[in-house]
Amino acid sequence: MSPTMSERYLRAFTETMTMVSVSVAIAIAFGLIFAVTLVATAPDGLYPKPKFNKAVSVVVNVFRAIPFIILLVALLPFTRFLVGTTLGTWAAVVPLSIHLIAFYTRIAQVSLNEVDHGLIEAAHAMGFRRWHIVRHVLLPEALPGIVGGMTVCVIAMINSSAMAGAVGAGGLGDLAIRYGYERYETQVLFEIIVILVVLVTTVQFGGEWLSRRVNHRR
């Protein structure tokens, strides 16, 4: 028995949410680590390592430069190695995460770099060790930007995950293409657009609210 249309919607929605939440979680964790590494090892950072810094920065740029759909194909062997298959939702999570790590690293890096140098100096003067400065000064002070960046990431992921249909990952975007584009069922296309707009708007407002909550600068 073939699934009803509403079952198809529910499944596509679940697939999209899985891809988005898992890859965002992975990207934020690794992106933050890379961003802190980049900021800390910068020539004027807490642990200056200019050569290492340059190398990490180049790697991040490479992944930033590759369009997602190409990255998806290029990473197929790596994906197979990691999840054992190149098809399905979990196979899509791999390129999505890697694409997003590079993106989020830069966002978080900008927020961390914007922390007033005077605060770092004051922390040194008060006898903070360097990791205290990362933990108690850099990260908390950059938090509003870090949270704001997460919102941008979630929305970017909702978009990119539509393309993951190419590896049979399913999701709302895939449903829209298969029914709306290939079978000319404009009703489906329209409904999915409405769902996506509601989703993106909710994420945007939720993110802004959270950003305001953690911002004590005014």
Binding site: G118, E121, M126, V137, P140, L143, H216
Partner: peptide, 12 residues
């Protein structure tokens, strides 16, 4: 101890 012109307090 050290104090600064622009106070340098942690906003968070």
């Amino acid at each position: 101890g050290m104090i600064f012109q622009h106070f340098n307090l942690l906003s968070a």
